[in-house]
């Protein structure tokens, strides 16, 4: 399990990185935490001519609050999602998701941007980003654009990032008064990719839930927004009936992959159970 040979460059700016990519005629891979790229090289699943290390680029780091949005640099490590007070206050689903992500040493090095750009359908942070209605800041030679998380995740391991573009930051809208969240997953072992996971965010008013946002993961090729379930909960207080209606709505929301080791019917069943549990345990964050 030794990687094929490649060249390596440590980029000092996003522009540097993108020009290195262009010079390599696209036969290049960006390296952030390396926790998806390096194993895939060791497995010889890919053999790029060039690895472009993004870790030294100042624009990709830092966590700051602007106009009601939290900007999280793409190189922010998983462990910061667990420990950073700004993330806990303004992007609480990342904090709630972080303990489920792999293991301590992986979290020390893995990055939020890397996790989102890799877009593993069983991974936690992408679903949290969708549920929080985050926006992804992408740099290209044409400039910078922001893509809503709903549009960012396109397919299995596929995002709105075009070849050569760099994911710079994640923008998360700050919680509003009455905001509640819930995150949970069912995995075989601690730190494993989820069999099924759920990230939920809503605003709890006296009259019921508003702005309900539900992202399920490991149920399709990318995080899946459960629109029918959201609708089933909107305007209602959380009670057994509301939860049952949301669970029932998943039948229409989900079309899970089918596999003898993991039949679609099992994923749907687990998604229902998990959503019920998450909804019954929503926590106020603002």
């Amino acid at each position: 399990m030794k990687s094929p040979a490649f060249e390596y460059v440590r980029a000092e700016s996003v522009a540097d990185a993108m020009s290195a990519y262009a010079e390599a005629d696209g036969d290049a891979v960006y390296l952030s935490g390396g926790h998806s790229v390096v194993p895939s090289l060791a497995l010889r699943l890919q053999a790029p001519a060039l690895l472009i290390d993004l870790s030294n680029i100042a624009a990709l780091s830092g966590i700051s609050l602007h106009d009601g949005w939290l900007r999280i640099g793409a190189m922010t490590r998983h462990v910061q999602a667990l420990k950073d007070p700004l993330i806990a206050a303004h992007a609480p689903l990342f904090t709630a998701a972080a303990p489920f992500v792999a293991h301590p040493a992986i979290r020390n090095r893995g990055t939020l941007g890397g996790s989102l750009a890799h877009a593993d359908p069983a991974s936690e942070f992408p679903a949290a980003a969708v549920a929080m209605r985050a926006e992804l800041e992408i740099a290209s030679s044409q400039g910078i654009r922001r893509v809503p998380a709903d549009d960012f995740f396109v397919d299995i391991y596929e995002t709105a990032i075009e070849p050569g573009e760099v994911l710079q930051a994640i923008h998360v809208p700050s919680p509003v008064a009455g905001q509640v969240i819930g995150f949970d997953e069912i995995a075989r072992r601690r730190g494993d990719y989820a069999m099924v996971g759920a990230a939920v965010q809503a605003v709890s008013r006296g009259s019921g839930l508003e702005d309900v946002s539900i992202a399920l993961f490991s149920v399709g090729n990318h995080p899946v927004r459960a629109r029918k379930a959201q609708a089933a909960l909107t305007g209602r207080m959380i009670d057994a009936d509301a939860i049952a209606d949301a669970q029932a709505a998943l039948e229409d929301d989900l079309d899970p992959p089918d596999d003898p080791q993991f039949p679609a019917s099992m994923r749907l069943h687990l998604a229902r159970v998990l959503l019920g549990r998450v909804l019954a345990n929503l926590e106020a964050v603002a």
């Binding site: 993991f262 039949p263 099992m266």
Partner: peptide
Amino acid sequence: MTPLRILTALGHV
């Protein structure tokens, strides 16, 4: 005894 096999035994799958 995986979750799948237990759920199958329980008739959920």
